[in-house]
Amino acid sequence: MTAMPKPGAMPDPMVPRRFRVRKAWDEIDGVATMELDPVDGPQIAFQPGQFNMLYAFGVGEIAVSISGDAARADTLTHTTRAVGAVSTAITRLKAGDMVGVRGPFGSAWPIAEQEGRHIVFVAGGLGLAPLRPAIYHVLNNRDRYAGFTLVYGARSPSELVFADEVKDWKSRFDTEIEVTVDHAAPGWTGHVGVVTTWLDKTLLTVDPATVSAFMCGPEIMMRFSAASLANAGVAAERQFVSLERNMKCAIGFCGHCQYGADFICRDGPVFRYDAVAARLKLKEF
């Protein structure tokens, strides 16, 4: 996507830098957020949509998107779901613990290039985490954008991350936010249904020619959301997605994240939708 600054003075791009956990807290069951301070060298400056390789001592390394505000230059924030050995170790880190970091890597949401437009964010589950830096950017610079819509879906109410923050965003008068779950639970009074149901509805109220969409979630959600956007008349070149694949190096050497000719670590993770639409239809690609 947009050209990225190369990672700073990094003698060997495979060697992690040490960071210390400033604060860590659970978001929902199995999902934790931590803020990191550098032990060696400067804080990492990043652009919304980029990711780091996080290393838990003696366990291993995984790619994790940066979930914090890029404008807060002193803070590096990651939100991780415990799904494997490394991610579990990372979600268990506490304030004062040390973690290794390499990065930042990858392409960014071209959010600054979409100034003046109505920004529609579509998030599924923890897909809200890689979108959150872009959301912060739009909310912090709200007067530079024509509109703000977030359609956020999760399997169940207990799977909604950043729920309190989403409520705060919704309480602003200059945002349009729809939250939906696949399966309701006792006490849930919000929407039930797939993301596209509410995306379709919100798109009825905006001029599609002004919409730029940023999507992150399961690939099937992004495919159907892109179809909804296309049906509503939003141009393919105004739609952006973030993709995920296995990564071992993040610098284009290990080959794991290849997606056709693209290395998701270098050419992605953020792509213009029309660049990947054909591939998203291929099975086991």
Partner: peptide
């Protein structure tokens, strides 16, 4: 690629 050892305040990495 590198080695790391546990230290009092975390770990140290040696390329």
């Amino acid at each position: 690629l590198w080695e790391a050892s546990r230290t009092d305040d975390g770990f140290a990495v040696t390329p």
